[in-house]
Design a protein around this nucleic acid. Sequence first.
DNA 1: GCAAAAGTGTTCCACCTACACCCATGT
DNA 2: ACATGGGTGTAGGTGGAACACTTTTGC
Lengths: 253, 253
Amino acid sequence: MSVQGYDKYAYEPFAVTVDLAVFTLRSGRLHILLVERGQEPYAGQWALPGGFLEPDEAAEEAARRELAEETGLADVAGLHLEQLRTYSEPGRDPRMRVVSVAFAALVPDAPQAQGGGDAARAAWLPYEEGAGGAYGPLAFDHDRILADAHERIGGKLEYTCLATAFCPPEFTLGELRQVYEVVWGTELDPANFRRKVLATPGFVEQIPGASRLTGGRGKPAALYRAGGAGSLHPPLLRPAPEPVPDAKKGPSS
Amino acid sequence: MSVQGYDKYAYEPFAVTVDLAVFTLRSGRLHILLVERGQEPYAGQWALPGGFLEPDEAAEEAARRELAEETGLADVAGLHLEQLRTYSEPGRDPRMRVVSVAFAALVPDAPQAQGGGDAARAAWLPYEEGAGGAYGPLAFDHDRILADAHERIGGKLEYTCLATAFCPPEFTLGELRQVYEVVWGTELDPANFRRKVLATPGFVEQIPGASRLTGGRGKPAALYRAGGAGSLHPPLLRPAPEPVPDAKKGPSS
DNA sequence: GCAAAAGTGTTCCACCTACACCCATGT
DNA sequence: ACATGGGTGTAGGTGGAACACTTTTGC
């Protein structure tokens, strides 16, 4: 059950916030939306955007509201926003007990820099795997949240059609493939990728006459739209995360 | 960021709770641990076990504590406990604002009935897919939480070694297969299942001399222990969830 | 012509599927 | 004997990995 006899003011109150890991692809690299903290603790450090739940607001609504505020995007309604998990360790905010519901969001591209609503500064910074990189350690436990979010996104690409959420309304298969390559940090065979995507009904649908040049050179590529499908059967697995040195039975490879 | 200028008593306080969907296998059926509510709202109805976060306790700790209280099990430390997601819709508890972190837990078997800590009554009831079943609609939004938990468990069986968490320390491959069959509601080929499991290094390891009779009849089966591996590569996919009638694209819209 | 990217074809192999078949045990 | 479940063997199909090859553009 959730609540029985309970004096709602008996305990030190919990603050409930949302934290957002917002990813985008920019010039062939994965970027993450960060804000610079204006005051203590962690003043001057980068942090994930986020904020408090309003009294009559679900976490998903708060997350989407924050997403709109921090990115400056108008059409936030259609963006992919996914609950990641909740972080509730007692010491994660030195001031008080803060329980934070973390979300992962995907944005096609963010040409506009975003005005920091209440933050000192906000920026898209290139994502670095090792939690270090161009922005240093993040405030609070946000390095961990960010790593969890990246892992989740990478995993979801395998068995969902999520990759189109990184793309503009019209995109080429090369651009779609680049989403996988950048998020996974691997290279994929263009031919096999193409077949795999086209073999999945509802993943993408071709725009009849359209075509576009991609990198300046090369044959113009056909344009596609996102299809209606959500899941990928069979999945598109990323190449072995662990090499697996040996095993009790190793047929040939 | 998480907190800026903020009067911690300015808002109506949030209560933070954990709710647990605890599954087990009993006599060949999937069971779920439920408690009967003693007071309003939803007095007399069944609900998921759960409770409040203590002031210095992470959600995971609270969940494990509740798990121990409600199941009566002593060795709760080794059980599989996994954060599902957080439910925060404003109206989900009529009395006050309750944000609930839901967990899914797997128990090998529960021979002992559990003493209800603070609940009127607690019981293992056979899980029903359609949220109805032997226990009727659950209190609050627990039907939804339970459905989400079942879906999560079913999905995780595909690509993790989680199934051993349902089994006692020593088990036969037939028992392990039954886990999949019961959770998925399908039948699996014993021969292929066997090969698949044994081909995955670290999924199970055989106990050299041991064997046991299973259903009274039949050849005694070899006994296995859970191995150290966590993930399943390649995954063990359940038979097609959607038949997908026809058409190369545009299934829904 | 050359480089680069799109797009097509083809081969090999891992793995999944399905069944057939033997083994050990209780009734 | 026979039913039942454990365990082994094997043939066929699907799909992914790897790679050769053609096409269309810019330089």
